[in-house]
Design a protein around this nucleic acid. Sequence first.
DNA 1: ATATAATTCTAACGAACGTTAGGTAGAAAA
DNA 2: TTTTCTACCTAACGTTCGTTAGAATTATAT
Lengths: 186, 186
Amino acid sequence: MAEKDMRERIKEVAVEHFNSNGYHGTTIRNIAKDVNCSLPMIYYYYNNKKELFDEIIKREYFDLLKRQTALLETNNVIDFYTKFVYDLNFLSNYDKKVYRLGIKVYLSFDGDEELMEIMDEWEKTILPRHYQILKPYLKNADNDIAIVRTLVHLLETLIESIVVKNRFLPEEEIREEISIVLRGCE
Amino acid sequence: MAEKDMRERIKEVAVEHFNSNGYHGTTIRNIAKDVNCSLPMIYYYYNNKKELFDEIIKREYFDLLKRQTALLETNNVIDFYTKFVYDLNFLSNYDKKVYRLGIKVYLSFDGDEELMEIMDEWEKTILPRHYQILKPYLKNADNDIAIVRTLVHLLETLIESIVVKNRFLPEEEIREEISIVLRGCE
DNA sequence: ATATAATTCTAACGAACGTTAGGTAGAAAA
DNA sequence: TTTTCTACCTAACGTTCGTTAGAATTATAT
């Protein structure tokens, strides 16, 4: 009915389609069919296909990432990171699909150069951020950075398992793996 | 000129295109243009687009994986896994692209259900295989399986960095991270 | 030399694509 | 009440897609 309704519904269906079929495999016609609106309706709210895709990544995905990183930290790093990962299990289906789509662009499996650059800039902030979080708990200085790097690498796979492969990861398994990497820091 | 030449050239160019543009973004016409042959030539060697894609995954990718896992193991696990990952830096461009394409299908970012099932079956063999390799070096039985799982997860990210993100990982960094996970097993 | 088979081509098919032109119906503003 | 504007539509544009029919060329076998 109202403007925002339709615009939002189009975006939701688009996330679904881009997710299942990729950018090239997604057609405006199929989106329109699932939204139950006419084809040009989509051009009424979005200038073209690419703009629709870009809005999902630039707004939805990065909003999600920022929401995610704004989580409170506890006084126990292992608890903190376990919760961080475990909570991903309970993201809404929409958020999971947006996240998945973002990772797809991040791995340059979809999207274009422009989006990749945005991803690269975000990536640069990851290591320093986690180094700040872990700093108080790291003891011996010789391999501190390697530990942070290893943890971030592990987190990447865990996130991929939940969001991309759509698996449920039990809290205990997450905790075990994070504990192995952070063994000695607590 | 000879049959095999052309068939192989088509496949090589196809790997390139599927890699850059995905299944749907790749067109037979563009492949033909880069191979410098006519369009129906591709249908002479491959029944259709999907068969061409499938051959790359089913033959090229899994051949590569099997070649990869057939590596000799040394008497030092950290050396072994470090070499295993580090050597990926020096894969041929063709092999890297095949690998990347396989991971794309593995993450169900491309391909279809049938290919996904093959991937799933392969995945089931991963943990047991590494457990066998690591078994002699694992000491305390309480979190043995978790250590293997964590290592496999770490390897996944390292492989992705090299093959998917196309980065060069220095041997020292790889060794550091593997050592952190395998701390205590040597 | 001639017949057969393998390799490659030109040309076109129908279908689907992204996109746009131009209109209708109803609400809001005048 | 008339006008203007917003939300939506039907219909079509030109292009490109996967695929094929059918013929030309080249190599092989007889």
